[in-house]
Simulated scan of single mutants.
Amino acid sequence: MKILFTEMHQGKTQAREKLIQGNIRLVLSVIQRFTNRGEYVDDLFQVGCIGLIKSIDNFDLSQNVRFSTYAVPMIIGEIRRYLRDNNAVRVSRSLRDIAYKALQVREKLINDNSAEPTVSQIAQHLDVSREEVVFALDAIQEPVSLFEPIYNDGGDPILVMDQLSDERSGDEQWLEEISIKEAMKKLNDREKHIVSLRFFAGKTQMEVAEEIGISQAQVSRLEKAALKQLRKYV
Protein backbone atom coordinates (compact mmCIF):
# COMPACT_ATOMS: atom_id res chain seq x y z
CA MET A 1 0.00 0.00 0.00
CA LYS A 2 2.78 2.43 0.92
CA ILE A 3 4.64 1.69 -2.29
CA LEU A 4 1.50 2.25 -4.37
CA PHE A 5 0.70 5.53 -2.60
CA THR A 6 4.27 6.71 -3.12
CA GLU A 7 4.07 5.85 -6.82
CA MET A 8 0.68 7.55 -7.14
CA HIS A 9 2.07 10.75 -5.62
CA GLN A 10 4.84 10.56 -8.20
CA GLY A 11 2.18 10.71 -10.91
CA LYS A 12 1.85 7.03 -11.84
CA THR A 13 -1.80 6.52 -12.79
CA GLN A 14 -1.50 2.72 -12.73
CA ALA A 15 -0.72 2.84 -9.01
CA ARG A 16 -3.89 4.86 -8.39
CA GLU A 17 -5.95 2.32 -10.36
CA LYS A 18 -4.46 -0.55 -8.35
CA LEU A 19 -5.33 1.22 -5.10
CA ILE A 20 -8.92 1.70 -6.23
CA GLN A 21 -9.36 -1.90 -7.43
CA GLY A 22 -7.61 -3.30 -4.38
CA ASN A 23 -9.94 -1.53 -1.95
CA ILE A 24 -13.31 -2.10 -3.62
CA ARG A 25 -14.11 -4.54 -0.79
CA LEU A 26 -14.33 -1.54 1.57
CA VAL A 27 -17.15 -0.11 -0.56
CA LEU A 28 -18.93 -3.47 -0.69
CA SER A 29 -18.77 -3.85 3.10
CA VAL A 30 -20.06 -0.31 3.71
CA ILE A 31 -23.06 -0.44 1.36
CA GLN A 32 -24.39 -3.46 3.28
CA ARG A 33 -25.43 -0.98 5.99
CA PHE A 34 -27.66 0.93 3.58
CA THR A 35 -29.34 -1.87 1.60
CA ASN A 36 -32.63 -1.53 3.55
CA ARG A 37 -33.20 2.07 2.39
CA GLY A 38 -34.94 1.10 -0.85
CA GLU A 39 -32.07 2.49 -2.94
CA TYR A 40 -30.57 0.65 -5.90
CA VAL A 41 -27.42 -1.19 -4.79
CA ASP A 42 -25.66 -0.19 -8.03
CA ASP A 43 -26.25 3.49 -7.24
CA LEU A 44 -24.93 3.08 -3.69
CA PHE A 45 -21.89 1.22 -5.03
CA GLN A 46 -21.06 4.01 -7.49
CA VAL A 47 -21.43 6.67 -4.80
CA GLY A 48 -19.31 4.57 -2.43
CA CYS A 49 -16.60 4.33 -5.10
CA ILE A 50 -16.55 8.14 -5.30
CA GLY A 51 -15.92 8.21 -1.53
CA LEU A 52 -13.15 5.63 -1.95
CA ILE A 53 -11.48 7.65 -4.71
CA LYS A 54 -11.65 10.83 -2.60
CA SER A 55 -10.08 9.01 0.35
CA ILE A 56 -7.28 7.65 -1.87
CA ASP A 57 -6.57 11.10 -3.34
CA ASN A 58 -6.53 12.76 0.10
CA PHE A 59 -4.81 10.08 2.20
CA ASP A 60 -1.71 11.36 3.99
CA LEU A 61 1.02 8.73 4.37
CA SER A 62 2.74 10.77 7.06
CA GLN A 63 -0.15 10.19 9.46
CA ASN A 64 0.04 7.03 11.54
CA VAL A 65 -3.40 5.80 10.43
CA ARG A 66 -4.45 2.67 8.55
CA PHE A 67 -5.96 3.48 5.16
CA SER A 68 -9.14 1.54 5.90
CA THR A 69 -9.62 3.53 9.12
CA TYR A 70 -9.49 6.74 7.07
CA ALA A 71 -11.44 5.49 4.05
CA VAL A 72 -14.51 3.87 5.65
CA PRO A 73 -15.85 7.11 7.24
CA MET A 74 -15.22 8.90 3.92
CA ILE A 75 -17.24 6.29 2.03
CA ILE A 76 -20.05 6.37 4.62
CA GLY A 77 -20.13 10.16 4.49
CA GLU A 78 -20.39 10.17 0.70
CA ILE A 79 -23.30 7.71 0.77
CA ARG A 80 -25.09 9.66 3.51
CA ARG A 81 -24.76 12.87 1.51
CA TYR A 82 -26.21 11.10 -1.51
CA LEU A 83 -29.16 9.79 0.51
CA ARG A 84 -29.84 13.22 2.00
CA ASP A 85 -29.56 15.01 -1.32
CA ASN A 86 -31.94 12.52 -2.92
CA ASN A 87 -34.43 12.59 -0.07
CA ALA A 88 -38.09 12.91 -1.08
CA VAL A 89 -38.25 16.00 1.15
CA ARG A 90 -36.22 18.65 -0.65
CA VAL A 91 -33.90 20.78 1.47
CA SER A 92 -32.12 23.84 0.11
CA ARG A 93 -28.40 23.63 -0.60
CA SER A 94 -27.61 26.41 1.87
CA LEU A 95 -29.42 24.59 4.69
CA ARG A 96 -27.66 21.32 3.90
CA ASP A 97 -24.29 23.10 3.86
CA ILE A 98 -24.92 24.61 7.30
CA ALA A 99 -26.07 21.25 8.65
CA TYR A 100 -23.03 19.35 7.32
CA LYS A 101 -20.64 21.99 8.65
CA ALA A 102 -22.44 21.94 12.02
CA LEU A 103 -21.99 18.15 12.25
CA GLN A 104 -18.29 18.50 11.40
CA VAL A 105 -17.81 21.24 14.01
CA ARG A 106 -19.69 19.15 16.59
CA GLU A 107 -17.36 16.17 16.02
CA LYS A 108 -14.29 18.41 16.24
CA LEU A 109 -15.44 20.02 19.50
CA ILE A 110 -16.24 16.62 21.01
CA ASN A 111 -12.75 15.38 20.08
CA ASP A 112 -11.10 18.55 21.41
CA ASN A 113 -13.09 18.90 24.65
CA SER A 114 -14.41 15.36 25.29
CA ALA A 115 -17.85 16.92 25.87
CA GLU A 116 -21.01 17.53 23.89
CA PRO A 117 -20.94 21.13 22.55
CA THR A 118 -23.92 23.47 22.87
CA VAL A 119 -25.81 24.83 19.89
CA SER A 120 -24.41 28.29 20.66
CA GLN A 121 -20.83 26.99 20.54
CA ILE A 122 -21.44 25.36 17.16
CA ALA A 123 -23.15 28.50 15.87
CA GLN A 124 -20.23 30.64 17.08
CA HIS A 125 -17.71 28.50 15.18
CA LEU A 126 -19.82 28.77 12.00
CA ASP A 127 -20.55 32.48 12.53
CA VAL A 128 -24.30 31.95 12.12
CA SER A 129 -27.24 32.27 14.52
CA ARG A 130 -28.14 29.35 16.77
CA GLU A 131 -31.61 29.32 15.19
CA GLU A 132 -30.04 28.65 11.77
CA VAL A 133 -28.08 25.70 13.18
CA VAL A 134 -31.15 24.15 14.83
CA PHE A 135 -33.30 24.67 11.74
CA ALA A 136 -30.63 23.22 9.43
CA LEU A 137 -30.08 20.13 11.57
CA ASP A 138 -33.83 19.52 11.83
CA ALA A 139 -34.19 19.94 8.07
CA ILE A 140 -31.82 17.08 7.17
CA GLN A 141 -33.49 14.53 9.45
CA GLU A 142 -34.86 11.67 7.42
CA PRO A 143 -38.69 11.47 7.34
CA VAL A 144 -40.34 8.40 8.84
CA SER A 145 -42.64 6.39 6.61
CA LEU A 146 -46.24 5.89 7.77
CA PHE A 147 -45.66 2.23 6.94
CA GLU A 148 -42.59 1.93 9.19
CA PRO A 149 -43.13 -1.00 11.62
CA ILE A 150 -42.71 0.02 15.25
CA TYR A 151 -43.67 -3.24 16.97
CA ASN A 152 -44.06 -6.89 16.03
CA ASP A 153 -45.02 -9.68 18.42
CA GLY A 154 -44.89 -12.41 15.80
CA GLY A 155 -48.16 -11.50 14.10
CA ASP A 156 -49.03 -8.51 11.95
CA PRO A 157 -46.68 -5.59 12.71
CA ILE A 158 -47.97 -2.33 14.19
CA LEU A 159 -47.12 0.55 11.85
CA VAL A 160 -46.62 4.25 12.53
CA MET A 161 -49.94 5.01 10.82
CA ASP A 162 -51.70 2.67 13.27
CA GLN A 163 -50.75 5.04 16.07
CA LEU A 164 -52.18 8.15 14.38
CA SER A 165 -55.73 9.39 14.87
CA ASP A 166 -57.61 12.68 14.66
CA GLU A 167 -61.02 11.36 15.66
CA ARG A 168 -61.18 12.73 19.17
CA SER A 169 -64.09 14.22 21.05
CA GLY A 170 -63.89 17.28 23.28
CA ASP A 171 -64.62 15.17 26.38
CA GLU A 172 -61.72 12.79 25.59
CA GLN A 173 -59.37 15.75 25.10
CA TRP A 174 -60.48 17.31 28.38
CA LEU A 175 -60.08 14.08 30.37
CA GLU A 176 -56.65 13.42 28.88
CA GLU A 177 -55.45 16.92 29.81
CA ILE A 178 -56.57 16.32 33.40
CA SER A 179 -54.78 12.96 33.58
CA ILE A 180 -51.58 14.47 32.14
CA LYS A 181 -51.63 17.29 34.70
CA GLU A 182 -52.06 14.76 37.50
CA ALA A 183 -49.29 12.56 36.11
CA MET A 184 -46.92 15.55 35.85
CA LYS A 185 -47.15 15.92 39.64
CA LYS A 186 -45.40 12.55 39.98
CA LEU A 187 -42.26 13.86 38.26
CA ASN A 188 -39.38 15.63 39.95
CA ASP A 189 -38.62 19.27 39.15
CA ARG A 190 -35.96 18.55 36.50
CA GLU A 191 -38.17 16.01 34.72
CA LYS A 192 -41.11 18.44 34.75
CA HIS A 193 -38.89 21.16 33.31
CA ILE A 194 -37.61 18.91 30.48
CA VAL A 195 -41.09 17.63 29.58
CA SER A 196 -42.48 21.18 29.58
CA LEU A 197 -39.70 22.48 27.33
CA ARG A 198 -39.86 19.54 24.94
CA PHE A 199 -43.60 18.98 24.55
CA PHE A 200 -45.24 22.25 25.57
CA ALA A 201 -42.62 24.78 24.42
CA GLY A 202 -41.69 22.65 21.38
CA LYS A 203 -37.90 22.83 21.89
CA THR A 204 -35.40 20.30 20.55
CA GLN A 205 -33.28 18.17 22.85
CA MET A 206 -30.21 20.22 21.94
CA GLU A 207 -32.00 23.45 22.88
CA VAL A 208 -33.17 21.96 26.18
CA ALA A 209 -29.64 20.70 26.91
CA GLU A 210 -28.22 24.19 26.38
CA GLU A 211 -30.89 25.85 28.51
CA ILE A 212 -30.47 23.63 31.57
CA GLY A 213 -26.73 23.04 31.19
CA ILE A 214 -26.46 19.31 30.55
CA SER A 215 -25.63 17.16 27.51
CA GLN A 216 -28.14 16.19 24.84
CA ALA A 217 -27.62 12.52 25.79
CA GLN A 218 -28.60 13.29 29.40
CA VAL A 219 -31.71 15.14 28.20
CA SER A 220 -32.67 12.13 26.09
CA ARG A 221 -32.20 9.74 29.03
CA LEU A 222 -34.18 11.93 31.47
CA GLU A 223 -36.91 12.50 28.89
CA LYS A 224 -37.37 8.75 28.34
CA ALA A 225 -37.51 8.12 32.09
CA ALA A 226 -40.09 10.91 32.55
CA LEU A 227 -42.29 9.62 29.72
CA LYS A 228 -42.11 6.10 31.11
CA GLN A 229 -43.22 7.47 34.48
CA LEU A 230 -46.06 9.46 32.88
CA ARG A 231 -47.39 6.39 31.09
CA LYS A 232 -47.99 4.70 34.44
CA TYR A 233 -50.51 7.36 35.41
CA VAL A 234 -52.08 8.39 32.08
Rank of each mutant, 00 (worst) to 15 (best):
D60M: 05
F200P: 02
E78H: 06
K228C: 07
S215L: 10
A71H: 01
D127I: 14
D112I: 12
A123I: 03
V128D: 03
P157M: 03
F45E: 02
S145A: 06
T35W: 12
L230F: 03
S114R: 10
M8I: 09
V133I: 08
H125L: 07
G22D: 05
V144T: 11
V195E: 01
R16H: 10
D127F: 09
Q14C: 06
A225K: 08
S120E: 12
M206N: 11
I110L: 07
Y70K: 00
K108C: 05
E142D: 11
I50D: 01
I214P: 00
Q14T: 15
M161C: 13
R66S: 01
N58D: 07
G77V: 05
Q63I: 09
G202Q: 08
N64I: 05
A183W: 02
N36L: 13
F199C: 05
V105L: 05
Q10E: 11
Y151M: 12
A201S: 13
W174R: 14
S92P: 03
A123G: 04
E17N: 06
L83V: 12
I212M: 05
K224V: 11
L19R: 05
A225E: 05
D156L: 13
F135I: 09
H9M: 14
G155M: 08
T13S: 13
A226R: 00
V128H: 02
S68A: 09
E148T: 15
Y70T: 00
A139Q: 04
R96K: 10
L146R: 09
D166L: 13
E207V: 08
Y70Q: 00
L146E: 02
E78V: 09
L4D: 03
V30L: 07
M74W: 04
H193V: 07
N36P: 10
D162M: 06
V65R: 05
L52N: 01
R16N: 04
G202A: 14
G51L: 06
R130K: 12
Y82R: 02
L164N: 01
H193P: 02
I158S: 08
V133P: 00
D127K: 13
S114V: 10
Q216C: 10
V144S: 06
S215M: 09
L103E: 13
M206H: 07
G38L: 08
A71S: 08
L197P: 00
V134H: 02
Q10T: 07
V41W: 06
N64T: 09
V160C: 09
E177D: 14
Q46P: 10
R80V: 08
R80L: 14
Q121L: 06
F59Y: 09
A226N: 03
Q21D: 12
S169N: 11
